[in-house]
Amino acid sequence: MTDKRCVYQEQITTYLDGELERETAAQFKKHIESCPQCSQELKEWEGVFDLLKLPEEEPGPGFTKSVLNALHRQKGETADLKQNPLILHDPWNIKNLTLVLSAIFLLAFSITSWLLTGAEQLLLIHHISRFVGIFVDTVFSLLPAPLAAWLYQVGNYLSLFADAVLTGLQQKLLLLLSWGETFFMLIRLLPPTAWVFMLVTGFIACLILGRLLENKTA
């Protein structure tokens, strides 16, 4: 064998792949007959190609069924997660998100009106704290005196802190209430018929949008 590599050797695998131009392939074939180096190399590569041609495999019986089962399982899982507004790639979810948002809005709306009509409900917090106070006092009376005194001291600080928190909370609630009131005033600015009209058009627009989104993917 000579040290020099024949230029045709570069073409051997491309030839076996059937990716040589017809003319080049003809030339190559002709060369092989006269070049022992290339014909030897060709034989070796033919062996490699023969080995590499692996047979087709079968995943075994029940494969399709396992795929369908996995899909069903997934569907069951996603059915629980359907309220999750983070999954937005599905138009179905966009529709759901709209529904959830309107539900949240309605809930907030009704809570606001409830608070507006009965602002004294805030007293409930004080009732609860008083009840807790009585309960704690009863427990303390059952403990040895020094320990009770110490705990009482700590409890005092805690209740001072809780009081501060509750007062702050109450102020926040009152702020929300004033917002609600402003909102109510805004609502009253328009006649009820206008609101009904807006609600109906909004609902119809939602329906049409949902239909359009559905059609796009089908």
Binding site: L54, E56, E57, P59, F63, T64, V67, L68, A218
Partner: peptide, 25 residues
């Protein structure tokens, strides 16, 4: 695409060997 599961099952049936073979190799 319209949600016909039998049709999808047939697609799986048709291509399972090719996909499985590639994955195994």
């Amino acid at each position: 695409q319209q949600g016909d599961e039998t049709a999808f099952a047939e697609l799986v049936e048709r291509y399972q060997n090719k996909v499985y073979t590639l994955a195994v190799h």
